[in-house]
Amino acid sequence: MTRKDLLDIESLSRREIEHLLDQAGPFKELFTRSVKKVPALKGKSVLTLFYEPSTRTLSSFEVAAKRLSADVTNFDVPHSSVVKGESVRDTIATLQAMRTDYIIVRNKMAGLPLVIARETKACVINAGDGAHAHPTQALLDGFTFREVFPKPEGKKILIVGDILHSRVARSTSTLMRKLGVEVAWLGPGSLVPKYGPEDIRRFTNFDEAMQWAPDSIYLLRVQMERQDAPYFPSLREYTKLYGVTRERFKRIADQGIYIMHPGPVNRGVELCDDVMNYSRCLIDQQVENGIAARMAVLYWLKPDENSPS
């Protein structure tokens, strides 16, 4: 079973997810060799199209594609014709004419990757679209979670922060649930949606969430750049109520709970400095695993001969 595009986690079966997580393992093993590159995608072209700023995801994809020997071109959006007023549709026509094999797209509009996927022969990977989905983040989270819990079924993950606006929370929750992991959300009432899957526990109080006894706590980044319409009064209050402060960290460490975060972290907001030196902090591991997971995705997708040329 193979697909042309990876647009979200929702449409993947548990078997497909497990296949991708299984495949990320052998890719990660390559990183310990002195030659980290393999020729699997030799001669293939990968185009990254990031309409939103990103350093980590963009370079993670770039490293993944290069380790598979693909040629990578970054479509420099801030300097491109988009700024000069070219419509998305015309950009797609341009991309199509370039005959690129893979397009990796990030945009603040949910659904744009789907539009591009429908209209091009290239394999399209969604690298984050609005508050909709960020499937490769979810895959690397699932892979990291399985490294510490080889049998994830029945384990518990608590996702903390602005759930409402987070594509990471959405995709990672979906993936974890498909693996049989119990998911709970914690955050200010204004940022924890009441709609959505009923099996996800909702908490607005840190202590109550701790009593649920999670195996891992997943801290979302407070998106400073998106606080123009604030959903909570101040950063200080957020940290006081939902941050992993030194006092909370002590309890977390005592209980041996793993800490995850999609990065980049705001030290002193979502978490205190001590967390970064904690032996069960998986944040650096997530970064390394991101490359392996993205290599697995690139290796898995196959262009569809029947799609529009």
Binding site: M1, D22, Q23, E29
Partner: peptide, 22 residues
């Protein structure tokens, strides 16, 4: 040794071989 990633016919396959690792 798993040679899947080194095959010369990957572009012609409908789905890539499953990696087992070396």
């Amino acid at each position: 040794l798993d040679i899947s990633l080194y095959r010369d016919d990957l572009a012609h396959l409908n789905s890539n071989p499953k990696l087992e690792g070396s």
